[in-house]
Each structure stands twice: as structure tokens, then as C-alpha cells.
Simulated assay, not measured.
Amino acid sequence: MRLVPVDTYLNFGNGKKRPADEGGGTFNVFGSNGVIGHCDEFNNPAGTIIIGRVGSYCGSVHYSPEQCWVTDNAIKGTAKTGADARYCYYLLLTRDLHSLRGGSGQPLINQTSLKSLEVPERSFADQKAIAHILGTLDDKIELNQKMNQTLEEIAKAIFKSWFVDFDPVRAKAKGRPIGLPPEISDLFPDELVDSEIGEIPKGWEVKTIEDVAKVTSGKRPPEKESVQSETCQYAVYGGAGPMAFCSEPLNFTKPAIITGRVGTLGKVFYLTDDCWVSDNSILICDAGVYSPLVFYVLQSVDLTALNVGSTQPLVTGKDIKNLNLVAPSDSLLQEYKGLFDLIKNRQSTANAEIEVLAELRDTLLPKLISGELRIPDAEKFLEEAGI
């Protein structure tokens, strides 16, 4: 297959300083490593490719299907006549743009180095077909991600309504219907009473996390590998999430919740699979039906405000143990945990599908771009797979 300069297909240009209004807005603002905010203006059309220009993320590649603002930390790529923008995005993903870095101080990529790239010559029809195949997989991945986000918002909204705002109790106290099935509605009292933390539903109790769960620190893993392998297949969680892999899981009861103890503070994770929890994290387990409540209580607290570290951020197990929650009846806890588990199971199914789709996309991508895999063969494969 004949090679041609990449600027056969793309016009390149530097982004511009982001607008002064950095609050909410309609348009995504792209920096060197993707979306960094929103604004009310755009400086590039839908179908823009964004390439990190400066800093540790220079060479990263992103795509905006909508109008957007590209900052001066990035280079914008727009498709020329006879070129498909999404195909060009996938094309750049197959090139090692990081190898184009220069600069004596911080890493830098310029338009000249980008234009030096040679890429396979493809007809516009082939470009459209390849973009459609890979785009179909990415669209399904995005759909699953959005569904998971919606499910999480539903679970969190119900938690807040039932266990923070006490909406069903307030409605019953005023004689209004609460919009829940009778078997669930009957589990809520119809009166609020005073407590040491303010009004709570009658018959409910103020408890601490220590009252309902075991709070400990994680442990140093036996070894760490940056890439998952047959010998190191278990994720190692730190305060910021999965950070490595090790050969064995830490023994603790699941489900469990972890949050950062030292370094990264404020993130909270709900664990259902075997893994290792490192010693820079706090592990909360043995919570049983209280697990969802503990999870959302921790998410609702400003954990960074609990920082007691002098040289680096630190949260103590004692601070976590002393956090309050309002405990309803066991029957209502069971109802909510059943709903929460259904949502988590559906999210797990979607995540598993995302992994399969991403692996398939990453396998097809270089083969389609290089011509090693014929477009009809890829289309037939996806059709047989029901995609």
C-alpha cells in the first residue's frame, strides 16, 4: 500500500488560550490530554482531532464529535476534502506520536514533526467504511458507559431521598402518597424526631461507621507489576484506584469499600472482586447490608477536610470510624441493598461488555488501517457477532 504524508488528509493548527469564562458551558474545552472543562464558545467544528502539544501528555490523541474549544496546549487536526475525520482519528491512534517529542525542557510536539508522518493511502470510501466499523464499537462502549453513569445516579438519588432528605417520611407525615410500592412504603415511619445530628425518622438510629463495619488499613502487596499477567492477575488498589497488579488477593470480606489514607484523598471505591488493597488506603469491610450506606456516606463527605498530614495528605482510620450515618430498619436496609446490588450487577455486565468491545476494537484497528484485514471480512465478523 502506497504511503502519503499525513497532511494529505489533515490540516493542522495550534489551539488558542481558553476563554476567560471557565464555568459551565455547552462546549467541551480540550487540553493536551482530553476534556479539561466547558465554556460557552467554540473555536473548532465537529469532527476535530485533538493532539497533545506540550507537557507529559503531548502526543495523546482525542476526537470531538461536537463543536469544541481547543486550547494552546494542543494541536487541532481537521479533515480536508476527501478525508473522513473519524478515520483520521483512528489513523493517528496507530502512530507513535510520543516518539515525535522534542524540546530541551518539557516535552513538545510541533506541526512540522506531525506533517513528517507517512500513512497508508486509502480511498474515501475505505476511510468511511473503516471509521464506521471502529466507530460502531466505540459508540457501543460509550452507550454502556453512559448507562452505567445513569444507573449510578439513580442509586445515589434514591440513597439521598431515602436516607438523607427522608422524602418518603416527610411525605407520609403530610399525608401525601410517596410513590413507592406498599411493601416498601410501609417500611418508612410517618414522623421525624430530634437527634444529636438533627431531625431523623422515628425509630431510626444515629450510628457511626465503626458501629456497622470493620475499618482497617490495607497492606503492602507482596509484589507489584504494572501490567496484568497470568502470574500477576489481581488489581492492586491505592487511594486513586487500581495502580498495579500482584499475584494474590488480600483476604477480606466483600463487598468492601476503600478510600485513600495517605497521598490521594477523596476517592471512594466499592469492591466486589478479589483484589489487593495497598497500605496507602483505608479498607472498610464486614458492613453487610450497611455497605451501600457506608459507600455513599463516604462519597458525600469532604474527605480532604479530614486531612491531618503535615507533609503529605493523611486521613486516619479513627476519622473514618467516627463518621455518622442514619440507620433505618433492617427490612429497609435489605430492600435498598437489593436494589443497589441489581444496579451494581448490571454495571458489572456492562463493564465486561466494554472490555470485550475495547479489546476487539484494539485488535481490528491496526489491521484495518494497514490493510492486513479486508474491510468486508471485518464487516462480516461484526455482523456474525451481532454488533
Rank of each mutant, 00 (worst) to 15 (best):
G15H: 09
L114P: 06
R361G: 06
M1L: 11
G24E: 15
G15V: 08
R86G: 03
T231G: 00
N11H: 13
T112Y: 10
F245W: 14
L382H: 12
E210L: 14
Y234D: 04
I184R: 13
A378G: 01
E41C: 15
G260H: 08
L293M: 12
D190M: 07
D286V: 08
Q312P: 00
G288M: 04
C275R: 00
A171E: 14
L325G: 03
G266P: 11
V277H: 03
N351H: 09
A155V: 01
T253G: 03
R261L: 04
P45S: 03
D190E: 05
K380T: 04
L306M: 15
P5D: 09
V227M: 09
D21W: 10
P242W: 06
I200E: 04
N43A: 15
S104H: 02
A20Y: 10
L360K: 04
V356C: 01
P5W: 12
R346G: 00
G105H: 09
V294S: 02
G260P: 09
E248G: 00
P242Q: 14
A79N: 02
T264W: 08
D139M: 10
A173S: 15
K76E: 01
K156Y: 06
S217G: 15
Q312G: 02
P181K: 12
S229P: 00
R220P: 03
E66T: 15
T363F: 09
F30A: 09
M243Y: 05
R101G: 10
I258M: 02
I50Q: 01
D96V: 07
E41W: 15
V262N: 10
K367H: 12
R101C: 09
A155M: 09
G23H: 09
V356H: 03
R176L: 15
L332A: 04
E355N: 09
G175Q: 13
S229Q: 08
D190W: 04
